[in-house]
Structures are given as structure tokens and as C-alpha cells.
């Protein structure tokens, strides 16, 4: 596939051409290095996952057959290709665990994304109302937790949510409850973790689209007698839709494959596909089934990912 990058360079040495920087063989070095890297370490691994998902588990190292070897003859190769099967995929559809994992991952992702939108919108909206001088600081304060380790932020909630944790202590001291609540290792804890971890991903695109809004539109609406609430739903919200869409994609896609949050905050009732894949791979050591799980996860996500990339590309052109 690298032939696409190896277009021969022209020997054009017209010094008055301002696009000179684009000529010469060096030009294609710039393209070829990152291109080759991504082909080798991003695309090729996917093809391997795909191939492996059609293989069978074996007690060997690596634990699957058939293994392809470049020293194999063509005949052997064909024999091995014939060994490939869709067994793993049939297995996935026959075992309710996997289907339930996929469905519950999607449900968790949809519900979490809605919750994040509900929490994030008022914050982003409030930020755009704040005095101009504060805004960069507020944006910085939203970004800062994003730089802090995901693992640490999830870990922080364990100390808060567990039975003898800070939340229960606080609620019991205040007298709201007399017995500690069980929150950790339930789906509620998973939702809290998701909202907490992905909130900056929603606030930032929302803020960006709300900040660009033309204030005079709201002034015009007010002059024409529109009450603020109605102006919000008829003007502000529709104009912030691109931010809502971008933020929702940025939250939804990674949440579907999330592993750390369901593993640390969730309990046995929490079924999520990222966790299932992890267990299949590290505990059951069934690499072919883990690969098939990954391929289907990818298929589930391909539509939102493509939609998201299109919206990114459109924004790139608009800029």
C-alpha cells in the first residue's frame, strides 16, 4: 500500500514558484514517515485481529491455530486459510453473555451521554455568560482534570462511594440516612464515574459552539418580546447543536468500549463489552474469541466513528 506514497518527485527547480516547498523528494519523506508508521502499527494490527478472529484456540504459544509463517509454501498457506472459520462469531451469538454485554454497553453509553449532556450544558452555558476576563481561566479549569490520570480520577471515587466511604459518612453525620448506602460496585457508581470522567469532553465542544453565538440574535428576540426561556429554546439551543453532536460523539464512542470504570466501580451486575474482552483475553486466554469480540465492537462503533469523522472534516473545511 506504500506505493501511494512513492510517487516520483519532479525535478522542477523553478525558484520563483512559491510552492517550491512542495517539490523535491523531501516532500514525500514528510508524508511517507507518518503514513508508513500508521500502516504498520495501526492498520496492519487490525488485519491481524480480523484474521485471528477466524482462527481456533489451541494450547500453544501463541495460543491459536493456524499460525501463518512467511516461510510457508503456497500450498500450506492455502491449507491454513481453509482452516479459518466463523466458529468464533457463531459462538458469540450463541452465548447470551456476549449479546447482553454489547446491548448493555450501548445502553450504558446512551444513558451516560444523556446524563453528561444534562450536567454539562448548564455548566458550559454558564461559562459563556461569565465575564470575558474569567473565561480563559474557566476553560483551563475544565481542561485540567482531563490532563489528570483517568485511573486516578476513578480511584478517587472509590474512597468516596464505598460503604465506609466519605459520602456515607457525610450523609450519616448530617442525618439524612441511618444505614450506609451501597453505591460502589453497582451501576449507579458506573454512571457517576462515566459522568465525572467524560464531562470535560462534553463541556468543551458545547462551550466552543455557545461562545461563537451572535449575541445580537438574543437581543433582537428580546426586543421583539420573546421571553428569555423561549429565546433559549428557539435560538440558543438550536445554534449549539453542533457542539451537542460533537460532545455526544466524543463521550458515546469511548464509553461503549470503556474498561477501567466498569471494572473498578461496577459490580457483578455490570456487563460491559470492554470488560468482557479483557476477561476473555487475560483470564480465559482465548485470543480468537477476544479478537472476534473486538471486531464486533468495532463494527458496532464504525457508524458513529464515521459520522464523527465526517463532522470533524466538515469543521476542518469550515475553518
Amino acid at each position: 500500500m506504500s506505493d501511494q506514497t512513492a510517487v516520483p518527485a519532479s525535478d522542477d527547480t523553478d525558484t520563483t514558484d512559491v510552492l517550491l516547498a512542495k517539490r523535491g523528494p523531501a516532500r514525500w519523506f514528510v508524508v511517507a514517515i507518518p503514513y508508513l508508521w500508521l500502516l504498520i502499527f495501526f492498520l496492519a494490527p487490525f488485519l491481524i485481529v480480523f484474521k485471528l478472529s477466524l482462527s481456533e484456540i489451541a494450547v500453544a504459544i501463541p495460543p491459536y491455530v493456524p499460525t501463518f509463517d512467511l516461510t510457508d509454501g503456497a500450498l500450506e498457506m492455502w491449507g491454513k486459510i481453509k482452516q479459518l472459520s466463523f466458529e468464533n462469531y457463531i459462538w458469540l451469538t450463541s452465548d447470551a453473555l456476549y449479546i447482553r454485554s454489547y446491548v448493555s454497553s450501548l445502553i450504558v453509553a446512551v444513558v451516560s451521554t444523556c446524563l453528561i449532556l444534562l450536567v454539562g450544558y448548564p455548566v458550559a452555558y454558564g461559562m459563556t455568560r461569565a465575564p470575558k476576563a474569567w473565561r480563559p481561566t474557566l476553560v483551563m479549569l475544565v481542561i485540567l482534570p482531563f490532563w489528570t490520570s483517568f485511573l486516578i480520577r476513578v480511584y478517587a471515587w472509590i474512597g468516596i462511594l464505598k460503604k465506609e466511604g466519605l459520602l456515607n459518612q457525610f450523609l450519616m453525620n448530617v442525618g439524612v440516612i441511618s444505614d450506609p448506602l451501597t453505591i460502589l460496585n453497582t451501576n449507579i457508581a458506573v454512571y457517576i464515574g462515566m459522568v465525572y470522567s467524560y464531562l470535560p469532553f462534553m463541556i468543551l465542544p458545547l462551550y466552543a459552539s455557545l461562545e461563537k453565538m451572535d449575541e445580537s440574535l438574543l437581543e433582537a428576540a428580546a426586543d421583539l418580546g420573546s421571553p428569555p426561556g423561549r429565546a433559549f429554546w428557539q435560538i440558543t439551543f438550536p445554534l449549539s447543536i453542533p457542539g451537542v453532536v460533537a460532545g455526544s460523539f466524543l463521550c458515546f464512542i469511548p464509553i461503549v468500549g470503556e474498561f477501567v470504570i466498569p471494572d473498578l466501580l461496577g459490580g457483578s451486575e455490570t456487563l460491559m463489552i470492554g470488560k468482557t474482552l479483557w476477561v476473555e483475553f487475560f483470564s480465559n486466554r482465548d485470543w480468537p474469541v477476544a479478537s472476534a469480540v473486538a471486531i464486533i465492537l468495532l463494527l458496532v462503533l464504525v457508524i458513529p466513528i464515521v459520522l464523527f469523522q465526517n463532522s470533524l472534516a466538515k469543521q476542518g473545511e469550515a475553518d
Binding site: P45, I48, F249, G257, F259, L277, W278, S291, F308
Partner: peptide
């Protein structure tokens, strides 16, 4: 890779 779940990226690289 910006939106790909970590588990898929990790698994595919390991298999590679």
C-alpha cells in the same frame, strides 16, 4: 485512534 476504544488498540497491537 482518537476515538477508538483502548481495549481494541491494545489488543490489536499485542497480536501484531
Amino acid at each position: 485512534p482518537l476515538v477508538m476504544p483502548d481495549v481494541i488498540l491494545g489488543l490489536s497491537l499485542l497480536l501484531m
